[in-house]
Amino acid sequence: MAEFKVNIVTPAGIVYDHRASRVVARAVDGDIGILPNHSPIIVPLTINAVRVTRVSIDAEDWIAVNGGILEVRNNVCSIVADSAERARDIDLERAFEEKHRAEEEIKRLDAQKQNKDARLAEISLHKAINRISVSKHKK
């Protein structure tokens, strides 16, 4: 079976490093699928799940990625992100608390017409929802 290396790195360190047969991520222009021997490419990612089909265990890993850059070169798919969490590492209670805080902040800022701050709160909300969604794929 053809395979390639996948690694996800954040400022805190390596979050993911395995062999895979497929990666699916959400780029700014839509979903992108990466297979072995993919042409070199660099694309910006949105806040969303990255799905990695592992070779060694014949299973799919889910990682919550909060934006970043995906690069493919020489059968290596690298993702550099501000933050990323594997489904198994997500603290679901904390994610729901962050979601609630962001929703309350959006309501407060909308009432005050604070558009820039409201946009930041919307980003926080999207990150929390992404983490909650990915956490459903724990193994």
Rank of each mutant, 00 (worst) to 15 (best):
E60A: 11
N48I: 04
T46E: 11
I32D: 04
S56G: 14
K116D: 03
T10Q: 09
S133W: 04
I79N: 07
V65P: 06
K127L: 00
Y16T: 02
A64N: 09
A121N: 12
E103Q: 15
E122F: 02
K113Y: 15
A102V: 08
I69A: 02
P40E: 14
D110C: 08
I14Y: 01
I8Y: 05
R86A: 06
N7V: 02
D31K: 11
R54S: 05
V76N: 13
E98W: 14
I57Q: 10
F4L: 09
A64F: 02
R19F: 15
A95G: 04
D61Y: 05
R88I: 14
A84T: 00
A81F: 04
E122Y: 01
W62M: 08
N75Q: 05
T53W: 15
I90K: 01
N66S: 14
D89W: 04
V76Q: 11
R94Q: 15
I8H: 03
E98S: 13
R88K: 11
N37I: 06
H126M: 14
R51I: 07
R88Q: 14
S124K: 14
D58F: 01
V52G: 03
R101H: 10
Y16D: 02
V55A: 09
L92T: 13
R88V: 13
I34K: 04
E122R: 10
A95T: 02
R22L: 12
P11K: 07
N48P: 09
V134D: 06
D117S: 08
A12T: 15
P40A: 09
A20F: 10
A49Q: 15
I8C: 02
I123E: 07
E60H: 06
K127T: 02
V24E: 13
E71C: 06
K5Q: 10
R86N: 12
T53S: 13
A49Y: 12
H18K: 13
R119H: 06
G67C: 00
L120D: 12
I57A: 06
A2N: 13
D82I: 07
V24R: 07
R86C: 11
I47C: 11
T46V: 09
